[in-house]
């Protein structure tokens, strides 16, 4: 296995203390037709914590976070976000909840008919209903500065590279100050250097905005840099849980297969 880079140490585990649980999932089940994708998903996300979910493609990692944000309804189990049962929410309650959750899609999901500025203004004017253009500009420039892309403010998404699109996507979700961030494969399709930059950016933003995050990935470098805790998913359930260093020494063959992959 490749040695951990000296410059980007794995995240050190914070001392255990009683922390508020922001996402509580217990026994979540989800099927598509006859295919059972989630069989028994149980986890808690604490405030300010970064959880990384590792697993092979097609195992339902993304389905889990889509259930958290109400894009999909679980077939069974308990799913509470900020102490409220998401499955029992009506449209307005769900909308209110979604304002506190940021979701970074795999490709960034930028609105391709709008410039970067318009992409960032969209949630401010439609979700937060801001009217003051000065305040809007300040927020847009502030968040673009935080992701290091202030120069790209008037570019179209088609003029941006994959990494830049993800950064802008990240900026667009952060602009409404979410308390939870859900990252769907944030480094997939990027070169190793950009992947590391994105992973470090996730950490930096987590510290700056005090966000709790669930990061879906199969990029071990990303997991090493960002994870406070790692959950390993196989066949619709979590088979292992622990810090990067703990799981590195796991006896479970499936878990070891991730750590033995060249990253």
């Amino acid at each position: 296995m490749k040695k951990a880079d000296e410059h980007t140490e794995p995240k050190k585990k914070e001392p255990e203390q009683k922390q508020e649980v922001v996402i509580h999932a217990k026994g979540i089940k989800k099927s598509f037709g006859k295919k059972k994708v989630l069989k028994n998903i149980t986890f808690d996300l604490k405030k300010g914590e970064n959880i990384v979910v590792l697993g092979k493609s097609g195992q339902g990692k993304s389905v889990t976070i889509q259930c958290v944000v109400g894009m999909l309804q679980p077939d069974g189990g308990e799913l509470e976000v900020f102490g409220e049962n998401i499955t029992a929410m009506n449209d307005d309650e769900l909308k209110q909840l979604r304002m506190k959750i940021g979701f970074l899609f795999q490709g960034g999901a930028l609105y391709d008919s709008m410039t970067v500025r318009d992409n960032l203004e969209f949630p401010l004017t439609r979700v937060l209903k801001l009217k003051d253009q000065k305040e809007i500009n300040k927020k847009v420039e502030g968040v673009l500065d935080a992701v290091g892309l202030l120069d790209a403010i008037d570019k179209m998404p088609s003029d941006l590279s994959g990494g830049m699109r993800k950064r802008v996507g990240l900026a667009r979700t952060l602009i409404v100050n979410p308390e939870i961030m859900l990252y769907d494969e944030p480094t997939t399709g990027l070169d190793p250097i950009t992947s590391r930059e994105i992973s470090e950016l996730i950490n930096r933003l987590q510290r700056k905005y005090e966000i709790s995050s669930v990061i879906i990935t199969h990029d071990m470098e990303c997991a090493r840099i960002t994870a406070d805790r790692i959950l390993v998913m196989d066949d619709g359930e979590y088979i292992a849980e622990g810090s990067y260093k703990e799981l590195e020494k796991s006896d479970n063959e499936m878990v070891r297969s991730f750590f033995n992959e060249p990253s």
């Binding site: 944000v69 109400g70 909308k95 979604r98 979701f103 899609f105 609105y111 949630p123 979700v127």
Partner: peptide, 20 residues
């Protein structure tokens, strides 16, 4: 927009894609 998850992105951000 559906394929590239732009509609989903609008929906999960709390914006209203049907209206827009």
């Amino acid at each position: 927009m559906k394929v590239t998850e732009q509609i989903d992105a609008m929906e999960v951000s709390g914006a209203n894609p049907v209206q827009y």
